[in-house]
Nucleic acid binder design. Sequence first.
DNA 1: GAGTGGTCTAGACCACGAG
DNA 2: TCGTGGTCTAGACCACTCA
Lengths: 247, 247
Amino acid sequence: MIPLVPSRRDAIADDLRDRILTGRLKPGERLPSEAFLAAQYMVSTPTLRNALAVLQTEGLVEKTHGKGNFVRRPLHRITYVGGRRTRNTHSMDLAPLSVTVHTTRVRARGHLAALLKMPTGSPLTEILCLGHEDERPHSLARIYVPCDLAPAAALREPLPYEGVTTWLTQLRPPLAEVRERVSVRLPTPEETSTLRISSSLAVLAITRQMADTAGRVVEAALLVLPGDRADAVFTTHYVIDEKGSEG
Amino acid sequence: MIPLVPSRRDAIADDLRDRILTGRLKPGERLPSEAFLAAQYMVSTPTLRNALAVLQTEGLVEKTHGKGNFVRRPLHRITYVGGRRTRNTHSMDLAPLSVTVHTTRVRARGHLAALLKMPTGSPLTEILCLGHEDERPHSLARIYVPCDLAPAAALREPLPYEGVTTWLTQLRPPLAEVRERVSVRLPTPEETSTLRISSSLAVLAITRQMADTAGRVVEAALLVLPGDRADAVFTTHYVIDEKGSEG
DNA sequence: GAGTGGTCTAGACCACGAG
DNA sequence: TCGTGGTCTAGACCACTCA
C-alpha cells in the first residue's frame, strides 16, 4: 500500500511541512519562488507545484497569484459548542472572533423553507455573520429567523454580534429543542472567496434548527467552519431514569 | 474571482460529473482509458488526470491502478446519531451496515490515555469496528474500554456488532454524560487504505467520551466517517426552567 | 505481454500584482 | 515592464492488473 519509493512530491511536501512546523519558515513569510524551489529540489515546476498543493489543502500554505506563496498565519482553533443555548450560557459560537453582521430580508425557498417548516416564499430575516481574526475571515454563519420574531426595523442599525444573539434570545419564546446536523463538504466557490480558503480545504457545515415548546422552528442557521480552524463539541447529559428515557 | 476562461480541467470535470449524475455513465461502470478520454477532449493526459482528480475528491470516481477509473457506486448516506445512547435507543451508529468486529488488548498512550483519564500504560480493550456495505468498506470505529469493564476473555469469539454494543451497555454502569468532539481532517494513510478512499477525501472524525455518574470515563471512541457518505446529528432537549439551566 | 494508471520532465504561454 | 503563479503540452518511464 505504501509506495517503496516515496514520490518526489510527497518528499518535498514533507520537507516544507517540517520547515513550517518547526518554525524555520515563519508564519506570514513568503516562500521562495516556485522556480527557485524547483531548482533547489531539482524537480520540474509541476512537481513542485503539486507539493505545494498538498500543503495548501492542509491549510499550511496560502498561494496568491502574482505575489507568491506564503506560510499561512495559523488561525486560532475555535470550538463550536453545540446545544446548551440557555440564558446563562448563550451562543459561544464564534466567541473569540470579531464578527461583522449584515441583515437582509429574504424569502424562504427550497431547503431553507423545509428547515424552517414554513411555506416557500415566507418572509425571513437573514443575519449574515462573518467572523474575523485580525482582519482575516475565519468562519461564516447565516441565521434565518421568521420575520415576526425579528422585525427588520430593529436591525437597521448595525449591532455587534453579541447584541444580535442576546436580542434574538430575548425576542423568541423559550427553546425546547436544538437539532444540529454536521457534515463535511468542500466549500462553494462563494465560500471560497468569502473565507479566502482553498477550494480543496473541506469545511464543517452545521445546519442548526431551533424549536420552541410548541414545536415551531424559530431559527435555522447554516454555519460554515473551515476544517483547519474549527471543531464542534456536543455534550449530552442523562437523567437517571429506570425507564431509560433520554436526558 | 471567477475566471473568465474556465480551465479545460474544470470544463472536463463538469462534463464528466454531469454524465455521471444524469446516469449516462452508470455506477460501477468503467470509464474509457485516460488516453482515450484525453484524445476525446483533445487535451494532454495530465490535464485529463487533473479533471479526474476533481471528481475523485468529490467521491464520484474511483481510480484503480492498472485496472481503470470507475464511476463510484454511491454508498448509502449514514446518519450518525449523537448522544441518546439509552437502553431503548442504543447506538444507531452504523446501523444499516454489516460490521466486522475485531478486539485486541492495547495499552493507553498519549491522547488516548488523556481521553480515558487513565495513566499511560493502563490496559484497555480495543474494539475495532469496520462497517461494510456489500463488501465495500464504509466507516470505521475504534472503541476503547478499560479492561475491568470489558474482559477480553468474553470477546475471544466473534460477536456481531449489535452483540458487542448491547454487551457493553449491559456491562457498564449507567451513563451520565456523553461528550462528542467533531472535526474535519484528511484521512491518515492507514485510513485511506482501510476504507479504500482517496487521500484527499476529508473525513468526519468524532471523538466520543462516555462517563458514568461518578465521572469515570467508561468508554472512548474514535469514529471515522468519510465525508461523502456520512453526517452526524445531535439533538439537545431543554428542561424548561426559570433559572435557565440546561436540559 | 498488453493495457492501464502513476509520476515526472522541460519547456510554453497566459494572467495577475506591483513598481 | 518584470516577476510571480496558473495552466497546459507531448511526451518518457515506471508499477500494477489481468490474461
